[in-house]
Amino acid sequence: MTDNHSHTDEGGETRRDFIHIAAAGMAALGGAAVLWPFIDQMNPAADTLALGTTDVAVDQLSPGDEITVMFRSMPHFVRLRTEAEVAAARNEDMGNLPDRLARNRNLEDSAPATDENRSAMSAAIAEGQSVDETLRAALLVTSANCTHLGCVPTQGSGDYGAWFCPCHGSHYDTSGRIRRGPAPENLPIPPMTFISATTLRLG
């Protein structure tokens, strides 16, 4: 541009004085601020965040039964475990667990991955209700998406008598804890409340 200054009154180099920097800086600031609404609009909308709760009638299950329910558009396993399964899960040495945290939304983040912390023992009970202790101990509700890359594990296969993820070979035990394979964490437990002796509400 220098040769074009031959016909200006001053000539010489453009002096980048304060006012130009201030104007350009303020314009850049505005441009950055405008970005946020356009980014945030892709986050879950208010109706998605408010998505309802899911009620499960647990009295329909007999030991060994498992159903898959949808909670917040994601599949969840609801399994009434047999006594043998509960015993196996309880007797497991914590030292054998790759992930020693309960991953339970009803408990502190630091809660250990004992079977008591994984089962419906951790679910809240609505005021004035009482729920059978054996049922709570045997009931297991977990996300049905493998913590590796999101596939749904199959029941009854794998080396730990419970779930096995066919995508990349992750093995989960009867407490939904990861035991072998590429998945990094135990299957997470959703927030849940017994609203009656027979109905468990997720969310």
Partner: peptide, 17 residues
Amino acid sequence: GLAVLLYASYRKVWSRV
């Protein structure tokens, strides 16, 4: 505010010619 700054900047630039 941006309009005021840009107008000042504009006057400054055009004061050369």
